[in-house]
Amino acid sequence: MVRTYLLLAWTWLRASAQYPGPLIMMVIGSFIVSGLDVAAIWVIFEHVGSLGGFDLAEVMFLYGAAGLSFALSDILFGNVERLSQHIKAGTFDTMLIRPAGAFVQMATDRFSVQRLGRLAQAAVVLAIALPQLGLPAGRAWMIPVMILCGTVIFASIFTLGGAMQFLLTDAPEVANAFTYGGSALTQYPLSVYGNELVKGVTFIVPLAFVNWQPALFVLDRPDPLGLPYWLRFAAPLAAVVLSVAAALAWRAGIRRYRSTGS
């Protein structure tokens, strides 16, 4: 599966490299578009010294970590969100007659470096924020773990959003509420949101484990909601559970797929 992924991704990459002009434009474009979110944070901190109890460097850290996870999962699996387009155009049928998983083919379809802009932008923010926090190694080890788990969680949400399109072929935008909505949610400390919402994204759609819970450990902060301490280490568990759910949903979707058109 990994081999097939790399093979397809590499082939698409080579094809897109034949037109470097638009490609570079699009990388820069995605860098700027995602930079707008940082501009918003900057405007907010022009007016306040802390948001939800977190200062600018801490918010940038939360933003950068979640942004990195989201960008990685978007590059690797984000194309799955185009499922409904493929179903409508009939190209999903042709994926099913090839001896490779439909998921891998979806994920690599038109694989391009365009989304690197977002990745670079998140990395820059994180690189600026980290030195200002002065973290000891005893807590900083969690950062790569949280970025990895966050990537798996977002990838699972992309997959769930794709699987949903087997049912809602005419309304793929619903998935955006969870994928891009999840990205927007994790850009700010969860302490700004209502308690019900935070509990929902802790125990139902586990977005809280993308950055919030592990970050409470990294920043050594008490949980404003007073949730159990061990949740800070539960990100790998959440990632595993959600990815299993996503895999099952995708398989169920394929099984009940009804090819339309002639």
Partner: peptide, 18 residues
């Protein structure tokens, strides 16, 4: 409309905090 509503709720909380 669903997506706009979800984003509305998320952004509202940020603005309330501000």
């Amino acid at each position: 409309a669903f997506t706009n509503t979800v984003f509305g709720i998320l952004r509202a909380y940020v603005l309330i905090a501000l």
